[in-house]
């Protein structure tokens, strides 16, 4: 008998996490670490790519972090890629394998992967945006035959800031996913692309009509990527974006993540451009 992690919420308090063990940690960059976590036996996370969990360090607090592992491969274990950027993530970065944290979730709506079958897919990742997309990319590549052409466009600040180096290498080698990377600022020895992520879009020549674009990155990136995707002719309902907001409770109660009538933690964090284009605050 397995229990879905999210079912625990309704048993006692929707705000009380379940303990999870850190089984491995890898330092990706100066600011980003990868955590491999294990739920208590009998629990499974059963998430959609693009969903997030609320991560607790007891005594410090809680923060929403998107799951970066593939659902099919997750089971009782799952992975997070965490940037050290606030109080909670600083505490998390200090933890060693064997340490315990708390998790609640998964929450919200992820990428509607069932609707991607037979389509060409462009993954557009800016910086840490690769983390939630890696969950989707792995899922898509595991069942590669279901999809049309697949491409990853990935931008980082400098060559030192690339996340998931092993994955990037294996994706580049497998040949059935077009990979283009770029950096804002090159360092010595970098002979790849330099420039913002939109400079990679012209490299993709998929017919727009059958193209799905999934876009995750810093807020500033969205406006420019959207402009170019729409100009290319990608349908508004086929552009999927993940929204970052202060999703404090994860259950649509605390109000912090509300944009217009949408609680990002419930209806989002992944929403189509068609759903948000008239919401003035969403992309400002």
């Amino acid at each position: 008998m397995t229990t879905l992690l999210r079912e625990t919420l309704d048993h006692s308090s929707i705000y009380m996490p379940t303990p999870a063990r850190i089984v491995a940690v890898e330092q990706f960059t100066e600011l980003e670490k990868w955590f491999h976590l294990e739920l208590p036996s009998g629990f499974t996370i059963a998430h959609q790519p693009g969903q997030f969990v609320e991560v607790s360090v007891l005594g410090i607090g809680e923060a929403p972090i998107s799951i970066c592992s593939s659902p099919a491969r997750s089971n009782g274990a799952f992975e997070l890629c965490v940037r050290r950027v606030g109080k909670l993530t600083e505490a998390l970065h200090r933890l060693e394998p064997g340490s315990m944290i708390g998790v609640r979730g998964p929450f919200g709506h992820g990428f509607p992967i069932d609707r991607f079958q037979g389509k060409d897919i462009v993954f557009v990742a800016g910086g840490l945006g690769l983390a939630p997309l890696r969950s989707l990319i792995t899922e898509v590549l595991d069942e590669r035959g279901k999809y049309g052409r697949v491409a990853l466009l990935y931008g980082a600040r400098t060559p030192k800031d690339f996340l998931f180096p092993d994955d990037l290498k294996s994706w580049a080698e497998r040949g059935d996913i077009e990979c283009h990377v770029t950096v804002d600022r090159p360092t010595d020895g970098w002979d790849g692309n330099v420039g913002v992520i939109t400079t990679l879009l012209p490299k993709i020549d998929f017919p727009a009509r059958n193209t799905i674009a999934t876009v995750v990155g810093p807020p500033v990136m969205y406006k420019f990527v959207l402009q170019d995707l729409l100009a290319k002719g990608v349908a508004e309902g086929n552009i999927w974006l993940s929204f970052e907001r202060q999703m404090k409770c994860g259950v649509g109660k605390c109000g912090h993540c509300q944009m217009h009538h949408i609680y990002t933690c419930q209806t989002g964090p992944v929403l189509s451009y068609a759903e948000v284009k008239d919401l003035e605050e969403a992309l400002s």
């Binding site: 705000y15 940037r83 810093p218 907001r245 202060q246 605390c254 109000g255 509300q258 605050e281």
Partner: peptide
């Protein structure tokens, strides 16, 4: 949990400092 207010300065700020 304590009452909060969407009028207060930090209400819609995300980690990293972006204020929606």
């Amino acid at each position: 949990r304590v009452w909060d207010s969407c009028l207060l300065e930090k209400f819609a700020v995300v980690a990293g400092g972006h204020d929606f």
